[in-house]
Computed example of a mutant assay.
Amino acid sequence: IVLHGNGDNFCAGIDTSIFDPNFPRKFADSMKPQPGSHANLFQRAACVWREIPVPVICAIKGVAFGGGFQIALGADMRYSTPEAKFSVMEVKWGLIPDMGISTTARHIIAPDRLKELAFSGRIFNGEDALSMGVVTSLHPDPYAAAMLTATEIAGRSPDAIRGMKRLFNSGFDLDDAAALALEARIQSGLMGRPNQVEAVAANLEKRPPEFDD
């Protein structure tokens, strides 16, 4: 999946028209966990990309402010232009960033760096984002670059790709014993299966693989 904005910006963040005297009451139900999820309606917008069992590449240009920044953190990879603008902007409105950032950012941004960005609400560019590890790489056309990567991934065994996403998203939060057990369990489920056999055969026969999905 390539996630991108429809226009000149990725996402400008919160719609300020919601700020009226009734907005806390209007959004009370939306703050409750959604059925079958630990996340509420707003958190799902970012967390859902981690739950989808295929890679998600975010292509960012223009601005990714507030909620837009948090949605991008839910992706597996983030490609950006050097001049794109980012901000954890919620403090500007007297709020905290609450779209799953406590789960999506933990393996992307160092805690002290995240606090600095969130406490200040400052705007930073793609070059800064790369140096902090917020984005994966910089490109003049991040959408085109993301599509190239997506095409390359699509040529790999879908079973292996799903297994790796599960391992990386879950294993990093486990203790050593549980993480190693998860590796072994996923690998055992792949070995000898049709797509794994096809991957070996295609490589040995020097031909494109034909996977079932």
Rank of each mutant, 00 (worst) to 15 (best):
D212P: 08
K26N: 11
H4K: 06
S17C: 12
V200S: 07
P24S: 10
M147S: 07
F65Y: 13
M89P: 13
L180I: 13
T16N: 04
S157P: 13
C11T: 03
I109R: 02
E205N: 10
P35D: 08
T16I: 10
Q196V: 07
S137P: 11
I71Q: 00
V48H: 02
G192V: 12
G67K: 02
M132G: 08
A202N: 05
P21M: 09
M147T: 12
N125D: 14
D20I: 10
A181M: 09
D76P: 02
A59Q: 02
A184H: 08
D8F: 01
A145G: 06
L130V: 04
I108T: 14
P111H: 05
D212G: 09
G100A: 04
L167G: 03
L182M: 09
N40A: 07
H4A: 11
M89V: 06
S170H: 07
P97D: 09
H38C: 10
S188N: 15
F211Q: 03
S188D: 15
M99I: 12
Q34S: 13
A75T: 09
S102C: 12
M89A: 15
I57P: 03
I161H: 00
R25F: 12
P142K: 00
A145W: 00
G36L: 07
P111G: 05
A199E: 13
P82W: 01
F86C: 04
F69P: 00
D173P: 09
I18D: 11
G67N: 06
L182A: 06
N9R: 04
P24W: 04
Q196E: 15
G121W: 00
N125H: 00
G62F: 04
T151K: 08
D212R: 04
D213T: 14
P194I: 02
S87Q: 10
I108H: 03
P208Y: 00
K26D: 14
R207I: 14
G163Q: 08
A75M: 02
T16G: 02
R207G: 14
P194A: 04
I14T: 13
G192K: 08
H107A: 15
L182P: 11
M164I: 15
F86E: 04
H4Y: 11
Y79K: 02
R185N: 14
P194S: 02
A110W: 00
A28D: 14
Q43V: 03
G74Q: 04
S120T: 15
S157W: 01
M147N: 03
N203G: 14
V88A: 11
C58L: 04
P111V: 06
T104V: 09
A202D: 05
V56Y: 01
P140F: 01
A160L: 11
M147P: 05
C58V: 07
I57C: 10
I186W: 01
A46I: 11
K32R: 07
Y79C: 13
P209Q: 04
I18A: 04
